[in-house]
Design a binder for these strands. Structure first.
Length: 228
DNA sequence: TGCCAGGCCGGGT
DNA sequence: ACCCGGCATGGC
Protein backbone atom coordinates (compact mmCIF):
# COMPACT_ATOMS: atom_id res chain seq x y z
CA UNK A 1 0.00 0.00 0.00
CA UNK A 2 1.58 3.25 -1.07
CA UNK A 3 0.83 6.25 0.99
CA UNK A 4 -0.41 9.17 -1.04
CA UNK A 5 1.65 12.24 -0.41
CA UNK A 6 0.94 15.71 -1.70
CA UNK A 7 3.83 17.66 -3.04
CA UNK A 8 5.02 20.62 -0.99
CA UNK A 9 3.34 23.94 -1.79
CA UNK A 10 5.07 26.25 -4.23
CA UNK A 11 6.70 29.51 -3.20
CA UNK A 12 4.10 31.38 -5.25
CA UNK A 13 1.30 29.49 -3.57
CA UNK A 14 2.55 30.47 -0.13
CA UNK A 15 2.92 34.09 -1.16
CA UNK A 16 -0.55 34.32 -2.67
CA UNK A 17 -2.12 32.59 0.28
CA UNK A 18 -0.48 34.91 2.78
CA UNK A 19 -1.36 38.03 0.83
CA UNK A 20 -4.98 37.00 0.49
CA UNK A 21 -5.39 36.13 4.15
CA UNK A 22 -3.35 38.87 5.79
CA UNK A 23 -3.41 41.67 3.22
CA UNK A 24 -0.62 44.15 2.44
CA UNK A 25 1.70 44.84 5.37
CA UNK A 26 2.98 48.28 4.32
CA UNK A 27 6.59 47.66 5.26
CA UNK A 28 9.07 49.03 6.29
CA UNK A 29 7.49 51.03 9.15
CA UNK A 30 9.93 53.96 9.09
CA UNK A 31 9.94 57.56 7.90
CA UNK A 32 13.21 57.63 5.99
CA UNK A 33 15.70 55.25 4.39
CA UNK A 34 18.25 56.02 7.08
CA UNK A 35 15.72 55.12 9.73
CA UNK A 36 15.21 51.82 7.93
CA UNK A 37 18.94 51.13 8.05
CA UNK A 38 19.15 51.94 11.75
CA UNK A 39 16.09 49.80 12.40
CA UNK A 40 17.61 46.92 10.46
CA UNK A 41 20.58 46.90 12.81
CA UNK A 42 18.55 47.44 15.96
CA UNK A 43 16.07 44.66 15.21
CA UNK A 44 18.68 41.93 15.06
CA UNK A 45 17.27 39.12 17.21
CA UNK A 46 15.01 41.65 18.87
CA UNK A 47 11.30 42.30 19.13
CA UNK A 48 10.29 45.20 16.91
CA UNK A 49 8.38 46.85 19.72
CA UNK A 50 11.62 47.31 21.65
CA UNK A 51 13.24 48.75 18.55
CA UNK A 52 10.48 51.32 18.08
CA UNK A 53 11.10 52.71 21.53
CA UNK A 54 14.81 52.97 20.83
CA UNK A 55 14.19 54.79 17.56
CA UNK A 56 11.75 57.16 19.26
CA UNK A 57 14.41 57.99 21.84
CA UNK A 58 17.01 58.56 19.14
CA UNK A 59 14.65 60.92 17.36
CA UNK A 60 13.78 62.81 20.50
CA UNK A 61 17.49 63.29 21.20
CA UNK A 62 18.16 64.34 17.59
CA UNK A 63 20.49 61.37 17.34
CA UNK A 64 18.89 59.71 14.36
CA UNK A 65 21.48 60.88 11.85
CA UNK A 66 24.69 59.46 10.51
CA UNK A 67 26.74 62.34 11.91
CA UNK A 68 25.32 61.97 15.41
CA UNK A 69 25.61 58.20 15.50
CA UNK A 70 29.13 58.41 14.09
CA UNK A 71 30.46 60.95 16.57
CA UNK A 72 28.47 60.96 19.79
CA UNK A 73 29.87 59.32 22.88
CA UNK A 74 29.28 55.57 22.91
CA UNK A 75 27.66 55.66 26.33
CA UNK A 76 25.14 58.26 25.16
CA UNK A 77 24.01 56.20 22.19
CA UNK A 78 23.95 53.10 24.37
CA UNK A 79 21.60 54.80 26.79
CA UNK A 80 19.27 55.90 23.99
CA UNK A 81 18.97 52.47 22.39
CA UNK A 82 18.96 50.48 25.59
CA UNK A 83 15.46 49.10 25.03
CA UNK A 84 16.58 47.34 21.85
CA UNK A 85 18.87 45.00 23.76
CA UNK A 86 22.53 44.14 23.04
CA UNK A 87 22.93 47.88 23.37
CA UNK A 88 26.74 47.99 23.56
CA UNK A 89 27.16 45.90 20.44
CA UNK A 90 24.45 47.75 18.59
CA UNK A 91 25.75 51.20 19.50
CA UNK A 92 29.09 50.14 18.11
CA UNK A 93 27.47 48.74 14.98
CA UNK A 94 25.52 51.93 14.41
CA UNK A 95 28.71 53.93 14.77
CA UNK A 96 30.71 51.82 12.35
CA UNK A 97 27.89 51.74 9.83
CA UNK A 98 27.31 55.49 10.07
CA UNK A 99 31.00 56.25 9.56
CA UNK A 100 31.03 54.03 6.52
CA UNK A 101 27.87 55.70 5.18
CA UNK A 102 29.40 59.16 5.69
CA UNK A 103 32.82 58.48 4.25
CA UNK A 104 31.71 56.26 1.37
CA UNK A 105 28.51 57.97 0.25
CA UNK A 106 28.49 61.30 2.06
CA UNK A 107 25.39 60.11 3.92
CA UNK A 108 23.44 60.31 0.66
CA UNK A 109 20.80 57.66 0.00
CA UNK A 110 20.80 58.63 -3.65
CA UNK A 111 24.52 58.05 -4.03
CA UNK A 112 24.44 54.86 -2.04
CA UNK A 113 21.78 53.22 -4.16
CA UNK A 114 23.29 54.38 -7.40
CA UNK A 115 25.75 51.55 -6.74
CA UNK A 116 24.97 48.19 -8.31
CA UNK A 117 22.88 46.29 -5.74
CA UNK A 118 25.04 43.18 -5.56
CA UNK A 119 28.19 45.23 -5.35
CA UNK A 120 26.59 47.28 -2.58
CA UNK A 121 25.58 44.07 -0.85
CA UNK A 122 29.21 43.01 -0.83
CA UNK A 123 30.21 46.36 0.66
CA UNK A 124 27.60 46.08 3.38
CA UNK A 125 28.71 42.55 4.27
CA UNK A 126 32.23 43.81 4.85
CA UNK A 127 30.97 46.09 7.61
CA UNK A 128 31.23 44.35 10.97
CA UNK A 129 27.81 43.83 12.49
CA UNK A 130 26.05 43.60 9.14
CA UNK A 131 25.26 40.09 8.00
CA UNK A 132 23.19 38.85 5.07
CA UNK A 133 19.76 39.54 6.55
CA UNK A 134 20.61 43.07 7.64
CA UNK A 135 22.29 43.83 4.31
CA UNK A 136 19.32 42.54 2.33
CA UNK A 137 16.85 44.40 4.53
CA UNK A 138 18.74 47.60 3.79
CA UNK A 139 18.80 46.89 0.05
CA UNK A 140 15.11 46.03 -0.12
CA UNK A 141 13.48 48.30 2.43
CA UNK A 142 15.75 51.35 2.24
CA UNK A 143 16.76 51.10 -1.42
CA UNK A 144 13.82 49.34 -3.02
CA UNK A 145 16.16 46.85 -4.65
CA UNK A 146 14.65 43.52 -5.71
CA UNK A 147 16.23 41.12 -3.20
CA UNK A 148 14.52 38.63 -0.93
CA UNK A 149 15.25 38.79 2.80
CA UNK A 150 15.62 35.44 4.56
CA UNK A 151 15.01 35.32 8.30
CA UNK A 152 14.25 32.88 11.07
CA UNK A 153 10.54 32.87 10.28
CA UNK A 154 11.22 32.16 6.62
CA UNK A 155 13.32 29.15 7.62
CA UNK A 156 10.73 27.87 10.05
CA UNK A 157 7.76 28.26 7.73
CA UNK A 158 9.57 26.87 4.69
CA UNK A 159 10.76 23.95 6.72
CA UNK A 160 7.33 23.18 8.06
CA UNK A 161 6.02 23.14 4.52
CA UNK A 162 8.95 21.11 3.27
CA UNK A 163 10.42 23.61 0.86
CA UNK A 164 13.72 23.23 2.69
CA UNK A 165 15.26 20.88 5.22
CA UNK A 166 16.13 23.79 7.45
CA UNK A 167 19.90 23.99 7.54
CA UNK A 168 20.47 25.30 4.02
CA UNK A 169 22.74 28.33 3.86
CA UNK A 170 21.21 31.77 3.64
CA UNK A 171 22.07 32.33 0.00
CA UNK A 172 20.53 29.03 -1.09
CA UNK A 173 17.17 29.92 0.44
CA UNK A 174 17.32 33.38 -1.04
CA UNK A 175 18.00 31.94 -4.48
CA UNK A 176 15.24 29.37 -4.07
CA UNK A 177 12.74 32.17 -3.65
CA UNK A 178 14.15 34.61 -6.18
CA UNK A 179 14.35 31.95 -8.88
CA UNK A 180 10.62 31.38 -8.53
CA UNK A 181 9.26 34.92 -8.27
CA UNK A 182 9.40 37.98 -10.50
CA UNK A 183 12.22 40.42 -9.82
CA UNK A 184 9.81 42.88 -8.27
CA UNK A 185 10.80 44.83 -5.16
CA UNK A 186 7.17 45.42 -4.21
CA UNK A 187 6.45 41.73 -4.25
CA UNK A 188 9.63 40.74 -2.40
CA UNK A 189 8.94 43.48 0.12
CA UNK A 190 5.46 42.15 0.72
CA UNK A 191 6.52 38.52 0.86
CA UNK A 192 9.10 38.95 3.60
CA UNK A 193 6.75 41.17 5.59
CA UNK A 194 4.00 38.58 5.31
CA UNK A 195 6.29 35.77 6.42
CA UNK A 196 7.30 37.75 9.49
CA UNK A 197 3.70 38.60 10.30
CA UNK A 198 2.41 35.07 9.95
CA UNK A 199 5.42 33.82 11.88
CA UNK A 200 4.75 36.20 14.72
CA UNK A 201 1.06 35.46 14.85
CA UNK A 202 0.87 31.73 14.25
CA UNK A 203 4.07 29.87 13.54
CA UNK A 204 5.72 29.64 16.95
CA UNK A 205 8.69 27.51 17.90
CA UNK A 206 6.90 25.37 20.43
CA UNK A 207 3.81 24.94 18.34
CA UNK A 208 4.43 22.82 15.25
CA UNK A 209 0.71 22.46 14.62
CA UNK A 210 0.45 26.18 13.98
CA UNK A 211 -3.27 26.46 14.77
CA UNK A 212 -5.32 28.94 12.71
CA UNK A 213 -2.36 29.54 10.44
CA UNK A 214 -3.52 30.65 6.97
CA UNK A 215 -1.14 28.07 5.54
CA UNK A 216 -2.67 25.37 7.72
CA UNK A 217 -4.22 23.30 4.95
CA UNK A 218 -1.14 23.32 2.76
CA UNK A 219 1.07 20.23 2.87
CA UNK A 220 3.52 20.31 5.72
CA UNK A 221 5.81 18.22 7.87
CA UNK A 222 4.62 16.77 11.13
CA UNK A 223 7.99 16.66 12.76
CA UNK A 224 8.19 18.38 16.08
CA UNK A 225 11.83 19.36 15.99
CA UNK A 226 12.63 22.79 14.73
CA UNK A 227 15.85 24.27 13.50
CA UNK A 228 14.95 27.66 14.79
C1' DT B 1 8.35 31.82 35.55
C1' DG B 2 10.83 30.80 31.39
C1' DC B 3 10.86 31.49 26.66
C1' DC B 4 11.13 34.26 22.82
C1' DA B 5 12.15 38.24 19.61
C1' DG B 6 12.60 40.58 11.92
C1' DG B 7 21.23 38.17 13.86
C1' DC B 8 26.00 38.43 14.02
C1' DC B 9 30.61 37.44 15.62
C1' DG B 10 34.54 34.85 17.33
C1' DG B 11 36.57 30.77 18.95
C1' DG B 12 36.66 26.00 18.80
C1' DT B 13 36.36 21.47 16.33
C1' DA C 1 32.59 24.01 6.74
C1' DC C 2 29.83 23.64 10.88
C1' DC C 3 28.71 24.37 15.97
C1' DC C 4 28.13 27.08 19.95
C1' DG C 5 28.12 30.66 23.57
C1' DG C 6 27.76 35.55 24.20
C1' DC C 7 25.27 39.63 23.62
C1' DA C 8 20.41 42.15 26.78
C1' DT C 9 15.91 44.26 27.06
C1' DG C 10 10.91 43.77 27.57
C1' DG C 11 6.39 41.27 26.70
C1' DC C 12 3.54 37.48 27.48
Amino acid sequence: MTRIRRRQPSVRQIYKRLLRSLGPQHWWPAHSPFEVMVGAILTQATNWHNVERAIARLKAAHALSASALATWRATTVQRLIRSAGYFKQKASRLRVFSRWYLTTYGASVRRMFRTDPWLLRGQLLEIPGIGPETADSILLYAGNEPVFVVDGYTRRIFRRHQLIVGDEPYDAIQRLVMDRLPEDPKLLNEFHALLVEVGKRYCHRRDPDCPHCPLGDLPRTREVTDHG
